[in-house]
Design a protein around this nucleic acid. Structure first.
Length: 439
RNA sequence: GCGAGGAUGGCCCAGCGGUACGGCGGCAGCCUGCUAAGCUGUUUUUCCUAUGGAAAGCGUGGGUUCAAAUCCCACUCCUCGCGCCA
């Protein structure tokens, strides 16, 4: 949530940010209309309450002196009736105002490119060496702004064929018992996934992050305060008959676990690495990536999360990016980094980097990781503060993928396979216990 | 699932119908040879005609009352027993 005091003082940055994101421009005007009404009401309500309080004190004193208090009681009753009406209407105004404010997105960082469409996001860098098919070369060069290193290949393999041939995934039976976008992982693929998780936890843990495995379900209060309407609708499954939701990322439980808390200054920054299953409806993705395990309803992820002082968050965004980049490099995966443009940012993020791996068989860059600075937006909704000499202030929160298992496994399969063999990246071998998977 | 206790400001804790006690910690100031001890003030959110005034706030939501932390009802969570259980 944004800071409504700042919005009242100076709405222009919020209008600009909203426009850059393609949001509903009327939100700001609607807020001001509701806020004026709210402020008019609260003044009247406070005056009435004040009057009632002093009457009450007077009554208690008169009772001690054994005087007759009936007329004063009558007056308080009348005030209460008046208040009941006003308070009810104020409640409605307040709810409506909250709904309006909560739809106003975070302020954009000035380095975010203002435009729409993923293809307009700003290229930051390319790393690694990609295997590129002749027919994809133009696309590869375009999306790396001619900075991409590559070798031409005519042999690429789809992860669907590979897993099929090696018996690593059973999609038919998963369909039978669960449905589309589910999979049964088998044999070495199970081990590969566990290896990736362990490897990522060690990798991030060595960089000063504590490790947390949060509950895979959290209640409505926690999830609504940790996320926004858009990602909620797209991703989140609800447990029927319970106030519980399956998490779509460990970001949400990690952020909300400190809800309504005040962190001591010396505790900051708080660096937390989270491991969890992730459940996603993929509601907005009909017909996309329907085969295999590239886009599924269930995967596992190692996440990085930082709670920090406001003045440090931009440095930590770079740190999170570097951590994930180093991790991708250590796996030997070629990738590019993009600075996601305003129109494609979620409403919490002031800035977001995506790391997109090169997938030789798909002939495309696809998202492997996403790293955001939510500044104080998420912390304000969750009411997470830190104690400082200038009074308690909201922390800044940042989150970023370390490894999302299914995507990373597909990347490994597409990048390191021959016809009958999936080669395991060298750094992972101590974790898998095998150096390749064969037919 | 059953029974019993509990939830109060950053933390601990008192109050159990009359408008939040005290302690610890934090911050500011005073004092002192000193960053120790001591003393004083302060410590949440909101509104306003703003060096001040007022409102809200005692797990959540209702109710009773002139007045609710306090009484009543419902719910949530925690602790301890008992039961069940990977």
């Amino acid at each position: 949530m944004i800071d409504i005091k700042k919005l009242r003082e100076n709405p222009e940055p919020y209008r600009k940010s909203l426009k850059g994101r393609g949001g509903d421009q009327d939100l700001i005007d609607k807020f001001f209309a509701l806020d004026e009404q709210w402020r008019r009401n609260i003044r009247i309500i406070n005056e009435l309450r004040s009057r009632r309080n002093s009457l009450s004190i007077e009554i208690s004193q008169m009772i001690k002196r054994k005087e007759n208090v009936e007329t004063l009681k009558e007056e308080v009753k009348n005030i209460n009736e008046e208040l009941k009406v006003l308070e009810e209407s104020q409640g409605n105004v307040e709810n409506e105002r909250e709904r309006t404010v909560s739809r106003i997105p975070n302020l954009l960082n000035e380095t975010v490119p203002v435009c729409f469409g993923d293809e307009n996001s700003k290229f930051v860098k390319f790393s690694g060496k990609a295997r590129v098919r002749e027919e994809n070369l133009e696309e590869f060069m375009k999306y790396t702004e001619n900075a991409g290193k590559y070798e031409i290949t005519d042999k690429t393999y789809s992860h669907i064929d590979l897993t099929d041939r090696m018996g690593l995934v059973d999609l038919d039976r998963a369909g039978k018992i669960s449905g589309a976008r589910f999979y049964i992982s088998r044999n070495q693929l199970v081990k590969l996934e566990l290896a990736l998780i362990n490897y990522a936890i060690d990798f991030i843990g060595q960089r000063g992050f504590s490790i947390v495995e949060p509950p895979p379900m959290i209640n409505g209060n926690a999830i609504w305060k940790a996320t926004d309407e858009g990602s909620f609708n797209e991703a989140v499954y609800k447990i029927e008959g319970e106030d519980l939701y399956l998490i779509s990322t460990s970001e949400h439980p990690i952020a909300s676990m400190l809800m309504d808390e005040i962190i001591e200054l010396k505790e900051l920054p708080l660096k937390v690495s989270g491991f969890s299953p992730c459940f996603r409806k993929e509601a907005g993705a009909h017909g996309k990536d329907t085969k295999g395990i590239f886009r599924v309803h269930y995967f596992k992820k190692v996440e990085q999360f930082i709670f920090c002082k406001p003045e440090d968050s931009w440095d930590y965004l770079e740190e999170l990016l570097k951590n994930t980049e180093d991790l991708m490099e250590s796996l030997g995966l070629p990738y590019r980094v993009i600075n996601v443009c305003s129109g494609e940012l979620g409403s919490l993020a002031a800035k977001k980097y995506d790391i997109e791996g090169w997938f030789p068989h798909q002939g495309k860059f696809r998202e492997l990781a996403s790293i955001s600075n939510d500044t104080d937006y998420q912390a304000r909704s969750l009411n997470i503060k830190y104690r400082s000499s200038e009074g308690n202030q909201f922390v800044h929160t940042l989150n970023g993928t370390a490894v999302a298992t299914t995507r990373a496994m597909v990347a490994i399969m597409e990048n390191f396979s021959t016809e009958n063999r999936i080669n395991i990246p060298e750094t992972l071998i101590p974790y898998t216990g095998f150096d390749s998977i064969t037919v």
